[in-house]
């Protein structure tokens, strides 16, 4: 750091640029130069103890580095991050009109329309080739959406590239979280709420979910037992989210079913009142079964193992009808 910078930043913020202690630490960290460093060096020629202090700080830093360096990212994580890159690449190649404007930086939490506003106010935006392409693509998608394919009574809903990318991200996240809860230690850490009153309060205050639905969700019966709830994160959701774990009786055994509830980010084209089967094969999570619906305000996602066939009983419990759409 330059003398000026050191004074301006460290000095003004800390209010003590003249402090020897501060300069000793800055010197140990290689943050001093110029006249401040020269004056300190002059002092150090006379002070064996302060030289020892600096040396200690340097060795402590090296030791902290050694101790904290830890393990590299596991291969499985590396593979998943590569999948995220691939999914995003597809979305990135979609016409710009459909893309959510990326944040200015990660601190920019403004909703997409607000972030887009400065861009869309420019005349050049509306004359961009991508916009014209986007308009054409929109027309094609609108036409395509008219010709929905009905298979076995379930309507497949066409998704654009951005919606597909979001669906993949959502499914991978919830399926992975569901699987992670198989580890009792992870489950006890995350799903720490067991008292119905506590869960109801959490849903009411944090998620703002209707109390009737929450009661039905966590009520333990002979067929379905509530085993815990906790807060969690759902991709693309700004507000808090909840993860509820149930155990559904299937013959002689029980199967875990996760229910995620969060404010609906509106990223998937879901009709209020309709329940959707999510195409987990397309998301690379074919071993999971995922159902989702929106009540217009909250998004509900139900996850179980594909072989467990436990989701329908959760739908019944929540008064939902059978899936009518496929995303």
């Amino acid at each position: 750091m330059s003398e000026h910078g050191a004074k301006q930043d460290a000095g003004q913020d800390a209010g003590q640029e003249g402090s020897l202690a501060v300069r000793l630490r800055m010197a140990a960290d290689g943050e001093l130069d110029g006249a401040l460093l020269e004056s300190l060096e002059t002092h150090l020629e006379r002070s064996l103890e302060d030289r020892a202090r600096i040396q200690f700080e340097r060795e402590l830093r090296e030791a902290v580095g050694r101790v904290m360096v830890g393990a590299n990212a596991p291969d499985a994580l590396r593979a998943r991050v590569s999948q995220i890159a691939e999914a995003s690449r597809d979305a990135d190649s979609a016409p710009a009109l459909f893309q959510e404007a990326a944040p200015q930086d990660s601190r920019d939490e403004a909703p997409a329309p607000e972030r887009m506003a400065p861009l869309t106010r420019r005349t050049s935006f509306w004359t961009r080739r991508e916009f014209v392409g986007g308009l054409a693509a929109a027309a094609v998608l609108a036409l395509a959406s008219v010709f929905v394919v009905r298979m076995a009574g379930i309507t497949s809903v066409p998704l654009n590239a951005q919606q597909e990318a979001y669906r993949t991200e959502l499914v991978q996240h919830v399926a992975k979280e569901h699987q992670r809860m198989e580890d009792p230690e992870a489950a006890s850490r995350k799903l720490g709420m067991h008292e119905p009153a506590e869960v109801e309060a959490f849903f009411s205050e944090v998620i703002e979910a209707p109390s009737g639905a929450v009661k039905r969700l966590i009520e333990s019966t002979a067929e379905c037992v509530f085993s815990g709830a906790g807060n969690c994160h759902i991709p693309g959701v700004d507000g808090a989210a909840a993860h509820v774990m149930l155990r559904v009786k299937l013959g002689e055994r029980t199967a875990p079913v996760s229910v995620f509830v969060c404010p609906d980010p509106g990223q998937l084209p879901m009709k209020v009142g309709e329940t959707y089967v999510i195409d987990t094969d397309a998301c690379g999570m074919g071993t999971s079964r995922v159902l989702a619906w929106s009540d217009g305000k909250l998004l509900y996602v139900v996850v179980s193992k594909a072989t467990a066939k436990a989701c329908p009983s959760v739908l019944t419990r929540l008064g939902r009808k059978s899936p009518g759409g496929r995303l």
Binding site: R89, D92, A101, A102, S106, Q162, E177, P235
Partner: peptide, 22 residues
């Protein structure tokens, strides 16, 4: 486990459309 989850979200954000320009 949580670190794994956090990293995935970080990269999902980093790879969002338009972030290269940003």
């Amino acid at each position: 486990g949580e670190a794994d989850d956090l990293v995935q979200e970080v990269y999902a954000r980093a790879f969002r459309p338009g972030t290269i320009e940003r």
